[in-house]
Amino acid sequence: MSDGQVMRGRLLVAAPGLREPTFHRTVILLLDHSATGAVGVVLNRPSPVDVAAVLPEWHSHVADPPALFVGGPVGEDTAMGVAVLLPGARPSPDLDALTGPFGLVNLDAAPEAVAGQVRGVRVFVGFAGWGEEQLEGEIAERSWFVVDAEPADLLTREPEQLWRRVLRRQGGDLAIVSTYAEDASLN
């Protein structure tokens, strides 16, 4: 699916009308997209749990804030390490390049095994998933804006500001959308 290749590594930004609490005002990095579905992680939902409580060896290797992030409602019993790769990073059993600057880190590995190949790591509990044609339908009904991702989106120190910041940098109508009130009925 050619569109899947274009979507992988891009962001889904929730439209203001998407009121479902799990995805309201989320920014999702698409890790995979194909004819059979899509998988991504929510970048702007830090949990109150510090990485040190679950993966103490990774605590000093994750980006600030060092919290576990709620990646989505699927697979909430597993953790996933997503990284921004340094130029020239080589795939290995501990590091899997996805697309562009993004990759997956094996959290069972020693952090030192990948530290020299990544600019930063974020740990997610759970992920967002869509079945065949489901995401395309949600995009067609204008629930999501699809925009380019930047490495700083994954590693932001201010995840609570990410939704507005990503929309604002798009310019035009999407920059205006970034100013919408939390309750869209007030606009």
Score class of each variant (00 low, 15 high):
residue 1 M to Q: 08
residue 1 M to R: 12
residue 3 D to W: 15
residue 4 G to N: 06
residue 6 V to M: 14
residue 8 R to S: 15
residue 10 R to P: 06
residue 10 R to I: 05
residue 10 R to K: 13
residue 10 R to F: 15
residue 13 V to C: 03
residue 17 G to C: 12
residue 19 R to W: 14
residue 20 E to D: 12
residue 20 E to S: 02
residue 22 T to I: 14
residue 22 T to E: 10
residue 25 R to C: 08
residue 26 T to S: 15
residue 26 T to H: 06
residue 27 V to H: 13
residue 28 I to H: 01
residue 28 I to S: 01
residue 28 I to C: 04
residue 29 L to C: 11
residue 29 L to I: 08
residue 29 L to H: 13
residue 29 L to K: 11
residue 30 L to K: 14
residue 33 H to N: 09
residue 35 A to W: 08
residue 35 A to T: 11
residue 37 G to A: 03
residue 41 V to G: 09
residue 41 V to F: 10
residue 43 L to S: 05
residue 43 L to D: 07
residue 45 R to S: 07
residue 45 R to K: 13
residue 45 R to I: 07
residue 46 P to C: 10
residue 47 S to G: 11
residue 48 P to E: 12
residue 50 D to L: 10
residue 57 E to A: 12
residue 58 W to Y: 09
residue 59 H to I: 04
residue 60 S to Y: 15
residue 61 H to F: 08
residue 61 H to I: 02
residue 61 H to M: 00
residue 61 H to W: 05
residue 62 V to Y: 02
residue 62 V to A: 00
residue 62 V to K: 03
residue 64 D to C: 05
residue 64 D to W: 08
residue 66 P to L: 03
residue 67 A to M: 07
residue 69 F to E: 01
residue 69 F to P: 00
residue 70 V to I: 12
residue 70 V to E: 13
residue 74 V to E: 09
residue 75 G to Y: 04
residue 77 D to N: 12
residue 78 T to F: 11
residue 79 A to M: 08
residue 81 G to I: 11
residue 82 V to D: 02
residue 82 V to S: 02
residue 82 V to Y: 03
residue 82 V to E: 02
residue 86 L to F: 00
residue 88 G to R: 05
residue 88 G to I: 01
residue 88 G to P: 07
residue 90 R to W: 06
residue 93 P to S: 08
residue 94 D to L: 05
residue 95 L to W: 00
residue 96 D to V: 11
residue 98 L to C: 01
residue 99 T to N: 12
residue 103 G to H: 01
residue 103 G to E: 01
residue 103 G to L: 00
residue 103 G to T: 02
residue 104 L to K: 07
residue 105 V to W: 03
residue 107 L to S: 09
residue 107 L to C: 04
residue 108 D to L: 06
residue 111 P to H: 02
residue 113 A to V: 07
residue 117 Q to P: 01
residue 118 V to I: 07
residue 121 V to N: 01
residue 124 F to R: 08
residue 124 F to T: 09
residue 125 V to W: 10
residue 125 V to S: 14
residue 132 E to R: 14
residue 132 E to S: 14
residue 133 E to M: 10
residue 133 E to R: 15
residue 134 Q to K: 06
residue 139 I to N: 06
residue 139 I to Y: 11
residue 140 A to M: 09
residue 141 E to K: 14
residue 142 R to I: 00
residue 144 W to I: 04
residue 145 F to T: 03
residue 146 V to K: 06
residue 147 V to N: 00
residue 152 A to I: 07
residue 153 D to F: 11
residue 153 D to Y: 12
residue 155 L to N: 03
residue 155 L to M: 02
residue 156 T to G: 13
residue 156 T to P: 09
residue 156 T to M: 04
residue 157 R to E: 08
residue 158 E to V: 05
residue 158 E to C: 09
residue 159 P to A: 06
residue 159 P to L: 12
residue 159 P to T: 11
residue 159 P to G: 05
residue 160 E to K: 04
residue 161 Q to G: 05
residue 163 W to G: 02
residue 164 R to G: 06
residue 165 R to S: 15
residue 168 R to P: 13
residue 168 R to S: 12
residue 170 Q to V: 13
residue 170 Q to R: 11
residue 172 G to P: 03
residue 172 G to A: 13
residue 174 L to I: 02
residue 175 A to R: 10
residue 175 A to P: 00
residue 175 A to Y: 03
residue 175 A to V: 00
residue 179 T to R: 15
residue 181 A to T: 14
residue 181 A to E: 15
residue 186 L to N: 05
residue 187 N to H: 13
